[in-house]
Write a protein that binds this DNA or RNA. Structure first.
Lengths: 275, 275
DNA sequence: CAAAATACGTAACATACGATACAGCGCTCC
DNA sequence: GGAGCGCTGTATCGTATGTTACGTATTTTG
């Protein structure tokens, strides 16, 4: 039994030619709004021609476009009247392999933020928004992308942001550039990497303020860190999840940006003009 | 400020003639479904003539009937896509600057997964778990870290996983290695990068299957993609959020790992012994 | 109560929308 | 390498749709 058009589409999308698949994907992406518009608008949004749209709805089993739209509308009406049943993909009697993953991830985030005080975050934001010192970011094997992500954003809104990458010897030598005014953002979840711990220890000796993103069991680097963000990482998977840390990182990026804008950063305008 | 058409109607319903009032009441009764149908159907449902319906929407301030319908659709889209706005009592105690960010992110994830079918994910997992072809990953300015993150995991559980990085000319030349059996995972959210689009186009011409991670507005690469994952990116911040895509990526990594383990990957054991 | 004004529906109209025929192209399979 | 099939877009067509003009009905007002 196929209850919704969305299901129907995902059932058959595999057996569709390229053009119709684009139509399907476009519809799913902003379901179901585009399906309520005219064929012309639909086709334009999907980047195909109108006949392809019509063939698409025909393949779904509808006699004509208006019939397709009516069904869509009825579906919508049913949803609106019982907000409870608003799920496109019904809770799906445990068959789904990803749903528990999502649930666990959402829980992780809520838990992570519950243990983070506004004060703590505000302190970190203040430090990161300080333009006087340099900002270094580094991560472990799986978390280095998070460091990169954060660096990519921070580098735009303030000067002297450096992501430390490549061989250990390379970034170890960068310690020479680090001093009291500077910040070192480290991502390290288990299994904690010795090289990172040693790096953090040395940096700490040089007076660098360390902001540590780690898991709830705390990397040994926590000993040297000025600020510690402990994220939940447990999910029903073979791997730990860095998603909670990722979200904290995004929240910090957003807050720092706001802070620097408030301070009157003409920097961003300058950047705009450079493009 | 009148935010919804429903409010607008209840504001003015007092100053309407009998026929138009019936139209208004009919619309409110099954809001907004009937307004999406044709003038003829609307008039029949309200028991008035079509011109009365048109006069009714004209009185609401719309130039013509299609404009009225578009507005209704936009309103509907806003409702459907941000479940947050449906909650009457926002989590409040709004002192926290990060809380709205978290809420929006959680919503984004729920929405993103709501638009993803198990079938769709299963297809992608099957393709990624296929050890025969090569797997290439690449991302845009801010999303490249996601590609790295995924590559870091996939490279452990299967051979021939390559993250494309560095200068454009470097990874463009890698196209020579790509063929029909291969997969290209692309992360691209707005502003979409031309270089990536061209890259995807060429790869597609070579028969590479493209898995696209993009935002809800769909990168132009969707045209060439075999599979499209549309994540929600809107958050109360100066930046778009990639968190939802990150979580999808993690879910896929987990699923692919499980799949390959089921196939009996002695690879992981081998790796263990190498350490 | 009469006269005017407003409201409403019928019917004709024009437009834009969905539908269809056809040709070009690429792909697959001999 | 050639023949066949399937997919896609262009151009055209018929029609359903929104729109307007006008006459009748109903209400309002002096």
């Amino acid at each position: 039994m196929v209850s919704s058009i969305a299901e129907l589409i995902s059932d058959r999308i595999g057996a569709m030619p390229a053009g119709e698949r684009r139509a399907a994907q476009t519809l799913i992406a902003s379901y179901p709004l585009i399906g309520l518009k005219t064929v012309a608008e639909f086709s334009a949004a999907a980047g195909v021609s109108s006949p392809t749209i019509l063939r698409f709805v025909a393949r779904l089993g509808f006699q004509n476009y208006p019939e397709f739209q009516s069904t869509l509308q009825d579906e919508l009406a049913a949803q609106l009247q019982s907000p409870a049943s608003r799920t496109l993909n019904p809770p799906s009697q445990g068959a789904s392999a990803v749903s528990p993953m999502l649930e666990a991830t959402l829980d992780n985030m809520r838990e992570t933020f519950r243990h983070l005080s506004d004060k703590q975050l505000a302190d970190i934001v203040a430090k990161l928004a300080d333009r006087r010192g340099k900002t270094f970011l580094i991560g472990g094997r799986f978390t280095d992308p998070l460091a990169r992500y954060m660096a990519a954003h921070l580098a735009i809104i303030k000067p002297n942001v450096f992501h430390l990458a490549g061989q250990e010897s390379v970034w170890r030598d960068r310690l020479i550039d680090m001093g009291k005014r500077d910040v070192l953002v480290i991502f390290d979840i288990r299994r904690y990497q010795d090289s990172l711990v040693r790096f953090a220890e040395t940096a700490n000796q040089r007076g660098v303020q360390i902001v540590l993103f780690t898991d709830q069991w705390l990397s040994p680097i926590a000993r040297f860190a000025r600020h510690v963000i402990a994220g939940r990482t447990a999910v029903p998977s073979a791997w730990d999840s860095s998603a909670a840390l990722f979200v904290v990182a995004e929240a910090l990026i957003g807050a720092v940006t706001r802070q620097l804008e408030a301070d009157g950063a003409k920097r961003i305008r300058e950047l705009e003009s450079l493009r």
